[in-house]
Amino acid sequence: MAQNFEELDPILTVPVRLIIVSVLVKMKQADFLYLKEITKTTQGNLSHQLKKLSEAGYIEIEKTSKGNYPQTICRLTKTGQKAFEAYVVAIKTYLHL
């Protein structure tokens, strides 16, 4: 149980990554454009943060095509779900909620 700032999951303490995981908790799946709109970040930064989350095993990324355009679909993994739940418990504990 995190009691200190430093103990929070470093993967999720980055704003864009936390937004992505928070959104995917509610979604079965979301595509790149939707996440870009929600996070209000740049294409490059979003790609970078998605890669970090994927490397941590928190999300899975599926590359497909829609018509003639490539499509990137993201889903939260069980690991990501557990990490998010643990993160929420940790910040609530820290804030004495």
Binding site: F5, T13, V14, P15, L18, I19, A90, I91, L95
Partner: peptide
């Protein structure tokens, strides 16, 4: 959201976000 640097959020900021 526009922060591109990987700076850590505080617990208060996390909860709001």
């Amino acid at each position: 959201a526009m922060t591109t640097e990987e700076q850590a959020l505080s617990p208060q900021e996390s909860l709001r976000l």
